[in-house]
Every structure is written in C-alpha cells, then in structure tokens.
Write a protein that binds this DNA or RNA. Structure first.
Length: 447
DNA sequence: AGTGATGATTATCC
DNA sequence: GGATAATCATCACT
C-alpha cells in the first residue's frame, strides 16, 4: 500500500463527461507523452473491468498492482466524484425525517415522572399524586409508602440511566468502529465523508430506536409502580368519623337530589379535610392520565346513592338521625338569626307547601310515631332549604313525596323521570313498608 | 378467621 | 362525560 486512507474530495465543476478531473490528475502524474497516458488509462480500465473474472488470488495480486499504479490516485478521485454525483444525490433527498411524536411523548412522560431529567426527590408529580391519593383525609401516616415508592422509582431511574448510558456507549463504540472500518475501506473503494456521515446517522437511528424501547419499557415500569402504589383500593382508608358525618349530613339533607355540584364537592372535601385527589385513569387508548377531581367525594356519593337505594330500610335509622340533626342545626340557625319565619306550622313551609301531601298524610303520621323526636326537629324552622330536603327525606320514608310531581320538579330534575330516576328508585320499599324497621324487607346483595 | 362495611375501580348505559 | 350497578380489595370489628 502506497498511500494514506484516501477519502473522497468533492471537486467543483468536475463531471464524468470528458473526465477533466482525470486529465488534471494525469497531468500531475503522467509524463508528456499523450499516447502513452491513454495507453496507461486503457490498460488500467481493462484490468479493472476484468478483475472480477479472475480467481481470488489473481484478483488480489491484480488489486495490489493497481493500488501501486501511478494512475491510481487519479482514477480513485474520478470514481469518487462519479459516486458522489450519482448515489448520494439519489439518496440524499429522502433522509429528512420528522421528529418522532411517540418519542417526544415518552420523553415528556419520563420527565414528568421524574425518571429522566434532574433528580428531584424521586419524582415530583408522581410523588405528589401518591401523597394525595393515599392521603385521602385519613392522616399522613403514609411516609413509609412514600419512601418505598420513591425508592422503587429511583431504582427504575437508576436502571434507566445505566441502560441509557450503556446504549450511548455502545452506540459511540459502534459508530467509531464503523467509521474506522469505512476509513480503512476508503483506501480501496470510494467513500465520501458524507457517506460516513450518513452511515453514522443510520447507526444513531438504530440505537435511538433501541433507546425508545428502553424508554417505553421504563414508562411501563413506572406505570406499573404507580398503579401498585397509587391504587388506593389496595390501601383503602376509611374516612374519619367527622368526614363521614359531614358527607352524610349533606347526603340526607339533599336526599331529593344527592348530586353535589363541583363546588359542593369542593366545599365538602374541604370540610372533610379530604385532599384534592389526583387519580390515575386509563383512557380508551390505554394511556394513563392524571385528573384532578374531588373523586373521593364523588365516590362516596356514588356509593352512598347506590347503597341507599338498594336498601333504604337499612339506612332509615341513619337517615332519620341525620334528618334530625340537619333540622336541629337549621333551627339553631334560624332562631339565632333575625328571620321571623314562624316554625309554628311545621308542615306549611317545608313540606306541605312543596309536596303533594294528599296521599301521604297518614303515612306522615306514621313517621312521626316512628321517630317522633327527629321529626319534631324537622318541623321547626322549616323555611330552610335543607330542611325542605330533610322533610322530603322523612316523607320519602313514608312513600309520600315521590308521588308529588311538583316537588320532584322543584328539586330534582331526575325526579321527573318516571323510571330509574333517583326518587323512583327510593320509593318502593318505603311505600310497601313504611313502618318497618331497618333492614326489614330488603335483600342486601351488595356484597 | 369470618364477616359486614366501605372506598375504589370497572363496565355499561344514556 | 357522568351516573349507575357490579365488583374488588381492604378495613374494622367480632
């Protein structure tokens, strides 16, 4: 071998036709005899053309001879030029590729989860979500879980970074290796820097696709970790007594329409010291999203509605208790306030005014006899909205109010529904067994 | 350990 | 999207 690795150089204005580049080089290397040069070129080309027909040994020998030929550098350059003009121009156009959206999503997620990016105590959003989800108004004795979660997350983080580093290292090593190989090969075949660049690009793309798989599996690992730690069902905590009371109070005082608005939920959550819960939900696409809602309150009401509806009898006692409580509270409010609404006619303001009492009068009495005290309380200060509902509840126990269309229209859009609505669902047992004790006729199939 | 209560999740419906 | 019904998983009490 007589030369350094010879990379292709681009020659402006050098084309194939007429081979001016070759003639230039010829002048630099050849003698003054034009016929002799032509003869040389003819010989070389002839040898190159027939080299494939020869045996391996012969070809090797011929290659070596050609390599040592004085015309070789010139011919090499010409071949490089030709190759550059043809091959690269064809491929060059289709190399642009758009930034990968999927990769960006993964990157964002890893960043949000605290896996990639700067260390911040084991994942910011996730840790916060964990805190909120498992905190749930039940106290803050979940630090052990947190540290466990953080430990696992940082484990994932560590593995991720180690793997990433490995991939990068491997990528670099492989790239260097390929570059060296190409440089080596450039002695015997025309390889341009551009070509090497392109090859490096291909390698990088291959490795980044591997990286993407790493990112994907890391994301999955984090999701699994999250679902395990944040799945509050696994670590369910009952609300404390106070919270339950507050929720129950609201429920029974809005029995006609126990669907708290978002504002009401917020208020209740605050009252109950229920933290804003961030929950993980899986969308239709299977991806996880974090939504911030007063889920716990919603869950509570959802459960309460369904369980109340299923077995009113069982909840009757509780209902009466809260009805009384609410009524007493309202009484206190109204008696302390400046309002002069007379509570002397208990039925007038709250129930009789709103509900169709025509067919519930006697049943109404039966409620009085059932829980006289509580109902007495409900009769006082009946001008308060909550009392109306309270009374409606008491009446509902007798099966009376659901018949009252006006009441339904007034308080509960759902109550208007003839079938499957809230009121309708509450009535049957009350109607059939208004005076029965708790849990009398209902089959609780809830569990 | 057994069991009911209860908070959360899931599937389905509207 | 929210509500419901069914179900799961855990708590809490016995």
């Amino acid at each position: 071998m007589d030369e350094q690795p010879r990379l292709m150089h681009s020659h402006a204005g050098v084309g194939m036709a007429g081979h001016p580049g070759l003639s230039q080089h010829m002048e630099g290397t050849g003698g003054t005899d034009g016929d002799g040069r032509k003869q040389d070129i003819g010989d070389i080309l002839q040898q190159i053309m027939t080299i494939t027909d020869q045996s391996l040994d012969e070809a090797q020998a011929r290659k070596h001879a050609l390599n040592c030929h004085r015309m070789k550098p010139a011919l090499f350059n010409v071949l490089c030029e030709i190759k550059e003009k043809t091959v690269l121009s064809i491929r060059g156009a289709q190399e642009e590729e758009p930034p990968d959206a999927q990769l960006m999503r993964l990157d964002n997620m890893l960043l949000a989860e605290g896996v990639s990016g700067p260390e911040k105590g084991g994942g910011s959003a996730a840790a916060a979500a964990a805190a909120a989800a498992s905190g749930g108004g039940a106290g803050a004795d979940n630090s052990a879980e947190h540290s466990d979660y953080r430990a696992k997350l940082s484990q994932i983080r560590q593995i991720y970074h180690t793997e990433l580093e490995k991939y990068e290292q491997a990528c670099n090593e492989f790239t260097t290796h390929v570059m060296n190989l190409l440089r080596e090969q450039s002695r015997t075949r025309p390889i341009s820097p551009k070509e090497i660049e392109r090859m490096v690009g291909i390698i990088h793309r291959k490795f980044s696709s591997i990286q993407m798989q790493l990112k994907q599996s890391t994301c999955e690992a984090v999701m699994i970790l999250r679902s395990r730690f944040l799945d509050a069902r696994r670590k369910r905590r009952n609300f404390n007594k106070q919270a339950t009371e507050i929720l129950n109070e609201y429920f029974y005082s809005h029995l006609s329409n126990p669907y708290p608005s978002e504002e009401a939920k917020e208020e209740l959550a605050k009252k109950c010291s229920i933290t804003v819960s961030q929950v993980q939900t899986r969308g239709s696409s299977g991806s996880f999203t974090i939504c911030t809602l007063f889920v716990q309150v919603s869950n509570w009401f959802g459960n309460k509605r369904i369980r109340y509806k299923k077995n009113i009898g069982k909840f009757q006692e509780e209902a009466n208790m809260y009805a009384a409580k609410t009524a007493v509270n309202a009484t206190n409010v109204s008696s302390h306030g400046s309002q002069a609404n007379s509570p002397s006619t208990p039925n007038s303001a709250g129930s009789a005014g709103s509900f169709n009492m025509s067919n519930s009068g006697d049943l109404f009495m039966s409620v009085q006899s059932l829980n006289g005290d509580s109902y007495q309380g409900a009769q006082v200060g009946a001008n308060v909205q909550s009392q109306v509902d309270t009374l409606r509840h008491v009446i509902s126990q007798t099966g009376g109010y659901s018949e009252g269309l006006t009441a339904s229209q007034m308080y509960s859009p759902q109550g208007i529904n003839a079938n499957g609505g809230w009121q309708d669902a509450t009535t049957p047992s009350s109607v059939t067994s208004p005076t029965e004790g708790p849990g009398s006729v209902h089959s609780d199939t809830s569990n």
